[in-house]
Structure formats: C-alpha cells, structure tokens
C-alpha cells in the first residue's frame, strides 16, 4: 500500500517535492532529483500523456504573477520530459513542451518552434532549455532586446539570424506598405533597425 502511493504520487506532489529539493541547499540535491525522477518514471507510459498532467498543474498554479515561480515550473517541465534519466530531451518533447508552457509568454513562440523543427538536429540541453526562457523574456517581437554578444546559445543566435533573413526578404517586397505605415504614425518606429 505504502509503495503504491509513492508510485502514484500525483503531479502536485511531485511538483512540490521538486520545488523542495530545488530550494534546499542540500549537496545531495542532484541525487535526490535522480531518485525522484526514477520514482515517477513509469507513471507516464506514453510520454505525451505527461502534458495532460502538466496542463492540469499549470491551471492550478498561479503562475502569471511570479516569474521566480514560473522559472521553477519551467525547469520542472524539462525535468519531467527527460527520458530514462537522460540529460537532454528530444526535439519533439521540447517542442510540445514549449508550445504548452510558453504559450502567451513568448511572442515569437510560433516562429521559434517552426525554426527548431526545421533546423535543429540535436537534442535540447538543459542550458538551452533555460536560455530559451531567458530569451523569451528579454526579446521583443521585432527582435529588439537581443544582444549578439549576449552569450546566447548558438541555436538562439541562429534563430535570430534566420528571423532577420526572413524579415529583410519579406520587407523588400512590402517597402511601400511599411512607408505608409510610418507616415501614419510612429507605429513602426521600433523597426528602424532594419
């Protein structure tokens, strides 16, 4: 009985455990996380069903206010998406997870996911995962806020370059339109950079 409850910890319990371990300064935090992951491993036979639970969790957590809490949740998503204790997660998992958790938080979410789908060949590392959140927070739709010297992972640099390329090629054909917009109001002022 005791054992079965530990197996069937629900998503809220796993999450609160995860948060506890993370916020504790325990030197063994790493091992504890590995333990935790092991114990919940076979809960989701089909990996994708993890997202149902995650969206349930998301619905109940009040994440909109506190960016710290969201970061913790965001890391938790990566944690749950790891298969068989691997360090990195596959692209499919990453894409599905991003689409779920960054919805409404990352203005370029669609573009980003399309880019990763098309151009990324390797799995997503934890560092990349975390940096995407940081990137989503500081970048604007027009890519302003991105600093090429900002120590972003190469994949994000590539993404920005890709976006610039698309934008300039599409800008050339709608030059006239942009100009009328500019004349109307300072609406496109942010685009001066192009």
């Amino acid at each position: 009985m005791d054992r079965s409850t530990s197996i069937f910890l629900d998503i809220f319990q796993i999450y609160s455990r995860f948060c506890d371990i993370r916020s504790s300064d325990d030197a063994n935090a790493r091992e504890m996380l590995v333990e935790l992951l092991k114990s919940v491993e076979f809960r989701w036979q089909a990996r994708n069903s993890v997202f149902d639970d995650l969206s349930k969790l998301m619905f109940h957590l009040d994440l909109m206010v506190d960016s710290c809490r969201f970061t913790c949740f965001y890391d938790f998503v990566f944690f749950l998406c790891r298969e068989n204790g691997q360090k990195n997660i596959t692209i499919e998992m990453a894409l599905a997870a991003w689409r779920l958790v960054l919805k409404g938080r990352f203005r370029l979410l669609n573009e980003w996911c399309n880019f990763v789908e098309k151009h990324q060949r390797y799995n997503i590392s934890e560092d990349t995962w975390q940096q995407v959140l940081a990137f989503s927070r500081c970048v604007h739709e027009d890519l302003e806020g991105y600093d090429p010297k900002g120590a972003w992972p190469v994949i994000i640099d590539d993404f920005v370059e890709y976006m610039h390329r698309i934008r300039t090629s599409s800008c050339n054909c709608c030059d006239a339109e942009v100009q009328t917009c500019m004349a109307n109001a300072g609406f496109h002022a942010g685009r001066k950079g192009f």
């Binding site: 990195n88 590392s125 934890e126 560092d127 990349t128 190469v154």
Partner: peptide
C-alpha cells in the same frame, strides 16, 4: 568557441 562552451556546460 561558443559551441565548445555549450558542450562543456552539458
């Protein structure tokens, strides 16, 4: 260099 740094982080 950046890629190597990423690899070292990993």
């Amino acid at each position: 260099i950046k890629k190597r740094i990423e690899s070292l982080i990993e």
